[in-house]
C-alpha cells in the first residue's frame, strides 16, 4: 500500500448531483489511468461535493486530463494539491490476528500510533487509525507480521495548508 512515485492529488469541487462521479471517473477510464484512491463527500456548502483523487500519472497526461475534467459542466473547481503544501488525512480499519500471546504487543502498537481498539475477539482485534497516509502505511507494515485478516482504508482527503493556501494548479498553469 505504499504510494506511487508520480502521484498527484486533485481536489475537485463538483455540483452535488447524480452522475457526476461517473462523468469524472469515465475520463480517467477512457485513458486507462488507474485512480489510486478516491474520496467523495459533501462540503461546507451543500450545493457542492469535494472529490479527492490520487492518481499515478506523469504531469503531461495529467494536464490534459485536468483540462478535460474542467470541461465537465458539473465541475466547479480543480486544485492540484502539492503534498508538501497540503494537510492530508486518511482512516484505516483493520482486523488482525491477536491471540493472547501477542495481544499486548499489538495493543502497545496501537497506543504508539494513537489508534483505537474497536472490537475484541478471542483470537482477533479490530482497530482504527486516523492520520497522515504515510503513518497509516507504517502502521500497516508493522502490523503485517501478526497477520492481517481484513483491512480497509478510506482513501485520502486533503485541504491546502492555511499558511500557504494559494490554490495550486501546477499541471495547467503553463498552458
Amino acid at each position: 500500500m505504499t504510494m506511487p512515485n508520480k502521484h498527484h492529488i486533485l481536489s475537485v469541487t463538483v455540483v452535488n448531483k447524480a452522475g457526476v462521479l461517473a462523468r469524472l471517473s469515465g475520463l480517467f477510464a477512457r485513458r486507462a489511468f488507474n485512480i489510486y484512491s478516491l474520496a467523495v463527500a459533501p462540503t461546507e456548502d451543500e450545493r457542492y461535493s469535494r472529490i479527492t483523487i490520487v492518481v499515478d500519472v506523469e504531469s503531461t497526461p495529467l494536464e490534459q486530463i485536468t483540462k478535460q475534467l474542467f470541461k465537465l459542466i458539473d465541475v466547479v473547481k480543480i486544485t492540484e494539491l502539492d503534498p508538501s503544501d497540503a494537510v492530508e488525512r486518511e482512516l484505516l480499519l483493520v482486523t488482525a490476528e491477536a491471540p493472547p500471546a501477542v495481544r499486548s504487543q499489538i495493543i502497545e502498537l496501537v497506543d504508539v500510533f494513537e489508534g483505537r481498539i474497536l472490537n475484541v475477539g478471542h483470537e482477533r482485534l479490530t482497530m482504527s487509525l486516523e492520520g497522515h497516509p504515510d503513518k497509516l502505511d507504517d502502521f500497516e507494515e508493522l502490523l503485517r507480521p501478526y497477520g492481517i485478516v481484513e483491512l480497509q482504508r478510506t482513501g485520502r482527503v486533503a485541504l491546502p495548508k492555511i499558511d500557504n493556501s494559494a490554490a495550486r494548479l501546477r499541471a495547467v498553469k503553463n498552458a
Partner: peptide, 15 residues
C-alpha cells in the same frame, strides 16, 4: 475557446 486544446498535441508559444 477550449483550454483543453492548447498544448494537447503541440505546446504553443503563445496560448
Amino acid at each position: 475557446i477550449d483550454p483543453a486544446e492548447l498544448g494537447k498535441v503541440r505546446r504553443p508559444d503563445v496560448p
